[in-house]
């Protein structure tokens, strides 16, 4: 039997943040305890107003070795940035 508790990735939405951001990881026996532990480990200094936890094992990561093939081709395609257009104020935050 594996004695170590599973690892969880912790995401916190800050006071004024719009989205949850990855802040770190921790060990916990289940999701409920992971939330409690995340509260105690990662929100001691008023860092957040909402917590998500995800089992680390559930995260599928891109292959670091494939970095060039995955990301290099977009480097010279600046026209994909919407910086050539005037965005009306009514659109709001994009």
């Amino acid at each position: 039997m594996k004695k170590e508790w599973p690892l969880w990735e912790v995401f916190i939405r800050g006071q004024h943040g719009l989205n949850h951001r990855h802040v770190g990881s921790l060990h916990a026996p289940d999701a409920e305890m992971a939330i409690k532990n995340a509260r105690d480990v990662y929100t001691r200094r008023k860092e957040g107003v909402s917590i998500w936890v995800v089992p680390s094992a559930q995260i599928t990561a891109s292959d670091p070795g494939a970095k060039d093939a995955l990301f290099e081709p977009s480097m010279d395609k600046i026209y994909r940035h919407p910086s050539f257009y005037d965005i009306p104020d009514e659109v709001g935050k994009m």
Binding site: W5, L26, K36, N37, D40, V41, R44
Partner: peptide, 11 residues
């Protein structure tokens, strides 16, 4: 017993 609990108890 574990780091997470250590911090929680200190809190």
């Amino acid at each position: 017993p574990v780091l997470e609990e250590d911090i929680a108890l200190a809190n």
